[in-house]
Amino acid sequence: MEARISKVSPKRGWKNILESRAGNKTKYYVLIILFTVLFFICMAFCFVRFVKLAHDHKVNSLSYRMESLQLDETMFGVEHDFSSLYFNYDYEEEFDEHWAFSDAYLAYIKGKISEDKTPYIEELKAYLDTAPGGEKEKAARQYLEELEGR
């Protein structure tokens, strides 16, 4: 008698394990391992996402940005104020003093390259009328002197 060849191909892969061919125990072991692996993948994703969110939250907090701005001032000087304000998105009222100085600094920059320096000199003088003192006022006086050619 001719040997019959089954038309049904043997089951392969994870379906084989989860269905009839594997013993019951193996099925449960595979499921437990699968759950555990997926669980740790999800937890790793959540952890990374949380760390990023927490970092963003910290970096965007007002106190952190204020500290960062003051650190920049200490390290690079008050001229760096505008860059710090711009790149850290420091738009809040708490940064009023720094924005006032930045406007004066931009006026100095424009005045430095312009032939007609008068409006920029006026702007610097207006700033100095209400200047808070300290490094900023000192720098603004230097800018004014430079523009006036003294």
Partner: peptide, 23 residues
């Protein structure tokens, strides 16, 4: 094993859902 699989699955699913919800 059956109970362990089911319970483990439920616990893991709960933790995963909670974590995603928290995020």
């Amino acid at each position: 094993l059956k109970h362990l699989t089911v319970r483990l699955g439920v616990v893991f699913l709960a933790i995963v859902l909670f974590s995603f919800g928290f995020i």
